[in-house]
Write a protein that binds this DNA or RNA. Structure first.
Lengths: 331, 331
DNA sequence: CTGAAAGCGCTAACAA
DNA sequence: TTGTTAGCGCTTTCAG
């Protein structure tokens, strides 16, 4: 039914080998006449190459698999844009596999799907691998790279912002604005969260601020986590919070407004990510902004073996969610 | 290098046929003993089935391709959740192909990629097909379905909200709240935009409101489009705007606040979509809320041939962005 | 219940 | 420059 190179061969009185050559653009191995005939026949028959067959014989698919989960955050489109851009330049197709909401079986399944198709590389976006995931990945002879997540293991490829530095910068910024009772909200208890926690603690320690452990409210980077974090802070006299993501910041902000707090006077917020969410809230959120597009691009480079373990710099974007504390009275 | 069924056959002294049968779970065609031997050998060898080979011989891939573009909106994750959920139930894998930002070549490429892999179906999420896209799709013997977009052609499968009704409801709501000078912002000039425009116009006509054409500000559903729409409205005495998406509404809202308008008193907004963006803004956005998850689920049903052309109902979610106009003075 | 053998659509030696 | 041929790894008749 669907035409194959055989049909083209029959129609042109050429061998399938010649047809394959012109369709594969093996320049110099066929005559202009053969080329013309094949191309025309292909057009007439509505021929389309069967990629599956090609992949089988070549034992290689020029495909990058991107495994991604439904993070409660919203930065993944930028990362994917970056991936797509660079992958296109390197002649790789991109297929995105979806791993649900941190659901282990779906993560395994996505990895297996990628592996079973001999993709040329796997990019794991914001995925915390469990033991099974790591085994699957290690056992296969396929390059993989964690993107927007750093496993602390120099031997495992990754591209991300420097989470320690990122939290450190944000905390320093708040301290520079007179805050000393500073919360950290919404981080998880895995690599990213722990790295950010360390940066936050380092900045506080750097200024001899004795942190109250209750200043750290864990969560999953979601809007809901931000909302939940507010009320504990109110009794702690916290004047500023570093939010683990824009979504956490937004949750914190709407919860605060629900309690009739005035921002930033009653509560300053610095957010991590710097997506468009920061512009949408009132007041706009000051953020440590990650370069997600570049993270995506470099992820491709890394998995295609063109770059070393990579840290992408962040920038601090001042908007309107931090108050200078000097002239204000701490509660 | 990578083990194949041949290796398992050699190791177990069985034929590759038998190995294939147990690995394919062709129950009743092999003995328990054979099964045990094969399974163990497979485990020991770290065998993983080569999906590409299977797809070649079966001439069929149990894969649904989802083609999606980087819409400036943000509802796609919900749709994908729904797709994934239903696809899983039907034993279909899902691969997501990314079509850039309404870029024709990338759209063709994504469609071709799907077609070249004989996927069992193609779901196009919020994709406006051009002539080439439609030809490609029609020519192939692969079921496809537009999701969150309705082409007005009863013969083409689609699942979406009723755009006419959705705009009609929103407009009626504003009229019921005393508004008569009502804008429509951010719609595109394709199917979705035109359908919503018609619904908006129908509601106005229904109340003998003579609409000023300038009340309609076109755009691409983006935050920027919302921001750009504000200033024209100020000179037109518009008291309320129906925003074509949550992002448009957010843009409108921040632009209005930038002009020191008080919302909703100075400008009421109803948004279309009802994503989490509506909760994040101040005031929260009243919206006509689409059931994106269900749209995704039904998209799978439709493409797998289990449902007819489908309209998913919407609901109006009242939040805080619409003022009752009775007791207020129109500018 | 098991094995032998024929392909799926294509590429890549190897000959001609 | 072109054709012949042998597979890629798997499923599936058809015999046994």
């Amino acid at each position: 039914m669907k035409p194959t190179i055989k049909d083209i061969a029959a129609k042109t009185n050429l061998s399938i080998a010649t047809v394959s050559r012109v369709l594969g653009h093996k320049q110099g191995t066929y005559s202009a006449k053969a080329e013309a005939k094949v191309l025309q026949a292909a057009r007439e028959l509505g021929y389309r190459k069967n990629t599956v067959a090609v992949e089988l014989v070549k034992k290689r698919a020029d495909v990058l698999a991107v495994i991604i989960n439904a993070t409660p955050t919203n930065f993944s489109t930028d990362i994917i844009d970056g991936i797509q851009e660079r992958a296109g330049q390197l002649g790789q197709q991109v297929i995105i596999l979806y791993a649900g909401n941190r659901e282990a079986p779906l993560q395994h399944q996505a990895i297996n799907t990628a592996l079973q198709r001999n993709v040329s590389g796997i990019l794991l976006v914001a995925i915390e691998p469990d033991a099974t995931d790591r085994e699957l990945l290690q056992a296969a002879q396929v390059p993989f790279c964690f993107v927007s997540l750093n496993l602390d293991d120099q031997n495992i490829k990754s591209v991300s912002s420097n989470n320690h530095d990122l939290a450190y910068q944000a905390t320093e910024y708040l301290i520079a604005h007179g805050h000393t009772r500073i919360g950290l909200a919404g981080i998880d208890d895995y690599h990213t969260g722990r790295q950010r926690l360390a940066g936050y603690q380092a900045a506080l320690a750097n200024h001899q601020i004795m942190a109250d452990p209750a200043w750290v409210q864990r969560g999953n980077y979601s809007y809901q986590a931000g909302q939940a974090a507010l009320s504990p802070y109110r009794s702690l006299g916290v004047t500023a919070v570093l939010a683990a993501s824009d979504m956490v910041a937004a949750g914190l902000l709407t919860a605060a407004q629900g309690q009739h707090l005035t921002l930033p006077q009653d509560l300053s917020i610095v957010s991590i990510d710097g997506t468009i969410i920061c512009d949408i809230t009132t007041p706009a959120l000051t953020s440590v902004t990650q370069d997600f597009r570049e993270i995506g691009r470099q992820g491709v480079n890394r998995v295609m073996g063109q770059a070393a373990q990579t840290i992408i710099p962040v920038t601090l974007t001042e908007r309107a969610s931090v108050a200078e504390l000097d002239q204000l009275e701490t509660k």
